[in-house]
Design a protein around this nucleic acid. Sequence first.
RNA 1: GUCCCCUUCGUCUAGUGGCCCAGGACACUGCCCUCUCACGGCAAUAACACGGGUUCAAAUCCCGUAGGGGACGCCA
Length: 450
Amino acid sequence: MVSMSVLVRIAPSPTGLLHVGNIRTALMNWLFARRTGGKFMLRLDDTDRERSQQSYADAIERDLKWMGLTWDLFARQSDRFSRYAEALEDLKKKGRAYPCFETQEELALKRRSQLGRGLPPVYDRAALKLSPDEITTKQKSGLKPHWRFRLSDEKVSWSDHVQGNKEFPAGSLSDPVLVREDGMPLYTFSSVVDDADFAVTHVIRGEDHVANTAVQVEIWKALGAPVPHFAHLPLVILASGEELSKRLGSMSVAGLRDEMGVEALALASLLARSGTSDAIEAAENMQELAERFDFKKIGRAPPKFDEHELLRLNARVLHRMGFAEAKPRLEALGLKNVDEKFWGAVRPNLHRLNEAKDWWHITEEKISPQIEDSAFTAQAAGLLPPEPWDQTTWQAWTEKVKAATARKGKELFMPLRLALTARHDGPEMKTLLPLIGFSRARARLCGDAA
RNA sequence: GUCCCCUUCGUCUAGUGGCCCAGGACACUGCCCUCUCACGGCAAUAACACGGGUUCAAAUCCCGUAGGGGACGCCA
């Protein structure tokens, strides 16, 4: 496996945003490339001109980069139409492509009738029976053919890195349409031409493609290109049981990042490990995920995508994040002059990075304190030591308050926390107090917004 | 309708006929730490979808049922 130079690719169509299923496929390809020292390619499958949009292409690139899935090669199918036309000519010469004149309505009707009779809706190859004269006549009358690939009558088989030995009996598949009347190639065809031209070695994709693989294997062979290895991954499903494939909204990568505040490494850890025999844990970095990648670990049942699991991993990733990495991210959230002390104080309490804003607000901006017993907090304010403050200040101060008031435990500490932060939970007060500072602390303890 | 894949604790899984009255990780629960939440440490609970069969012996093999996912496009 390592001796050959690996090239894998991810081939999204820019007709929508990447969702967790798509990016998982991308991730698996990327990890495999990294694992084997091979290359990773991004190919935009934009042959569907009606649905493809540049804005989606941009979003896809952005999402991949965000997750760290950088590519070594790039191609766009709309740049390569002449190659598909050439390849079609090649197949025509070899007698593997034949012209068809049915309309889509006719084909739909045929399918319905087959289904009604309990038969698989396989194309009946009526066009193959057309005589050369009939074809000429149709073309002279202005009809333009679409072109189908003539499948052989042998069973197709391959060894799948996830699914094991796969076999498709002859006759269970339709001759695929390669090129439309208007000359536009279809995915089934352009994908193989590209994989062959770029010498893709491993096709790692969702298991919704297994039937495509069966027909595509024959196209590779007809083109005279080496057939790559295949790995068909089980499709991710939502924990709620809802389908994923057509729902973009909340499970889009962009949505998870921009609305849910998910860290790329948390998402990558979850997607790389759920459905495998590795424990679902936050990885230190992408390299660690790559080192552990192995087809043998991938199960065949569809893994559930669980948002709670994602949030748990997200917290872990944040708890380990160093200040150098956090600093620019915090600044992007609008937090000015954040320092390492602040990060060290709030980091253990974060589930999402943007929660740091709440603590920034409490240490740096005006808040209204929560006072339960104003006599007590005012008395405590009077005992506040002069600055400078450090991590020992809180204990020294609360010792004095304790001695002066005879309060202890929760009775002592909670009113102080509430007055100083207006919240009953949060980072340790010994780290928070120096960040709040003397003047704010005194004012808040006296019941003033500060 | 036809075909393909799948079904072990809440979740992801280990397990390829005896080593399994099923192992791990995470979650949950309890305890410890503790001013709170989180972190960390410790402990406990928890599963072979169902029904037949093969066998001295089945989570593991066979058949069936149920459930989940996928495919059957001039989408990708």
